[in-house]
Design a protein around this nucleic acid. Structure first.
Lengths: 342, 342
DNA sequence: GTGAAAGCGCTAACAC
DNA sequence: GTGTTAGCGCTTTCAC
């Protein structure tokens, strides 16, 4: 039952089984060049019968062409990145390219390692999250001789192309919305920042804009690890106890925002009457909550799509060597947890 | 600024830059064989200075060794699979092996395509979700000449090794628990089954066990697509209206269970007094809910760990060709939404 | 429409 | 400790 093959089949095996030269077999299997219908059939039959699986290692070495796109992201547990990936996959589906995913856990050293590892397979392009990389990583990206698209964020200095939103602007927009709505005693909750540059930039945009309106963050709390929903709940409980006069809570992601929302509703606190809430990302999950959390869409799918299109275009030979810079517009989704006062 | 290299560097470049033969350069870069400290330094300096990234394509072809493990799963959006992946990564981190992920979207044809694609890179092993594959996929797995571990499920006939839980048994256990607690009017909600064999098996185990106790499912509802939380909410609303005398709801996953829980609490319905609830998976998210949903742990991380260990052991040369069969025990986590009646 | 020869960039095996 | 030689399994190129 469990007869593992000892050797994998080669073109030569198919050639012998079909009585056609290796070269022609290769042509048939790649649909390349003109081959008579008769030989094509012979070859395809033999290949299928034997269960031949071409060796891409050899093919790639010979053709100097590897149809892989390295996609480097911080995490898979985040909801956000699987959505970006699905945008990428959908675009690459229609091309010869295939995405290969590497995960960095938000660690620059790991990013460097993953990048090195992936580049050693000579992919046709790189899509990588963020604009902040170690010197070595930047050097590798520039040396690689392939298109590079940095995604998610546009606040910085890209190596090559770039697709994303301005997180500073996103923070600013949300601050404006909150201030315009009349809230003044604002608390902030988010991840410990050094790890997550995009969250940091949103925070910066947020606080600066508040400052311009003469408002200062009244309280703040940071977390790392654990169930985000539970963390949101805990941090919110702690914060409303510590600073009871808060009238708004801004969360750096929807998951902790959802946790906070559930907690406040449970406590019978009037949202958004007594206290308003907002998150960030526009995740799917929010649709199932008792109230729709006010949030801001990060254009995740679209970012994936645009980035993949840039790589695909390069690969198709449209090598306009101009780096593309695509800035998408985050859109506020009003939700039920922010209401203009009076 | 944006000077893309036109050609990638080869061993030869490092060889020339360091004045050391290609072979010795290769040895240094792979930490293989004895090289004097002096030449080692010269080589490493040159490699670093040039920014050399080895070409694994060529290396793999020459050494007939590819340190990749193909990991084939149905979806990334599911919470469940990222956790399996993290178990796999943690184990492989300490080896020369690297996981490469392929996603099938629960479609057999896509599984076949992804598998073919991955096998053409000649990985050192395959970890693949489920025991149900097309004939062609099974044939490829057997032909590949590499260790194969089918994961998540053990109810079926594995190609080679297998690590998972019995989903029939999981369904049975939950049914027993519910019956023992005194519930009799039971509703079921889950995904449309043909796609998800494991959900189907849980359902089968569940209904059969109920049948033995003379109980039949009082109502059922299936969904596909959309936000699981929202779907759980909707389906629950529909079901409790349609069949008001239900005293228990069994959900095929925690996400829809959470949606149902939130809905019922909002309606002021007494959980678990008036109606009990249970889900499946033991996801992280549950920790942030108002009540802990009763659920069953699917041993996701552990499955990943065990599977990776099997592949790693093979790769390390412990090629006992005996297929491993590891059956893990799903454990009930009591939670707050199931209470023994009377 | 088909085949023969050369070689992609590296490493195994052996010589020195 | 270091160098030389011969491929790995394909594709490119060019000849027929």
């Amino acid at each position: 039952m469990n007869t593992r093959a000892k050797r994998t089949l080669t073109l030569r095996d198919v050639s012998e089984a079909s009585g056609v030269s290796e070269m022609t077999v290769s042509r048939v299997l790649r649909n390349k060049g003109d081959v008579s219908e008769a030989t094509r059939q012979k070859v395809q039959d033999a290949a299928k019968r034997l269960g031949y699986v071409p060796n891409k290692i050899a093919g790639a070495l010979a053709s100097q062409r590897v149809n892989l796109v390295a996609v480097i992201i911080p995490s898979l547990g985040n909801m956000v990145f699987p959505e970006v990936l699905s945008g990428i996959s959908d675009v690459l589906e229609d091309t010869a390219l295939q995405p290969v995913v590497g995960v960095t856990d938000y660690l620059p050293e790991k990013e460097e390692k993953v990048l090195f590892e992936m580049l050693s397979w000579r992919p046709s392009g790189v899509i990588i999250a963020g604009l902040e990389h170690s010197e070595a990583s930047r050097a590798m990206l520039m040396q690689a001789g392939i298109p590079v698209v940095e995604i998610m964020d546009v606040d910085g200095d890209p190596v090559d192309s770039c697709v994303g939103i301005s997180h500073r602007r996103a923070g600013r927009m949300m601050a404006e919305e909150i201030i315009n709505a009349g809230y003044r005693r604002i608390g902030f909750m988010g991840t410990k920042m050094p790890l997550d540059h995009r969250a940091r930039k949103r925070f910066e945009g947020f606080t600066r804009t508040l400052a311009k309106a003469g408002v200062e963050i009244a309280d703040q709390e940071f977390y790392s690890g654990g169930s985000a929903l539970a963390k949101g709940r805990e941090m919110t409980a702690k914060m409303v106890e510590r600073t009871p006069d808060l009238d708004f809570l801004y969360y750096s992601n929807d998951m902790i925002g959802a946790g906070g929302l559930l907690y406040l509703l449970e406590q019978g606190i009037d949202v958004p009457g007594k206290i308003g809430l907002a998150g960030f990302n526009g995740v799917d999950l929010l649709e199932g909550l008792p109230l729709r959390l006010t949030t801001m869409d990060a254009c995740r799918r679209e970012i994936g799509v645009k980035a993949a299109q840039i790589i695909a275009a390069h690969n198709a030979g449209d090598l306009d060597p101009e780096p593309h810079l695509v800035t998408l517009e985050p859109t506020l989704s009003a939700g039920d947890t922010l209401r203009h006062k009076r």
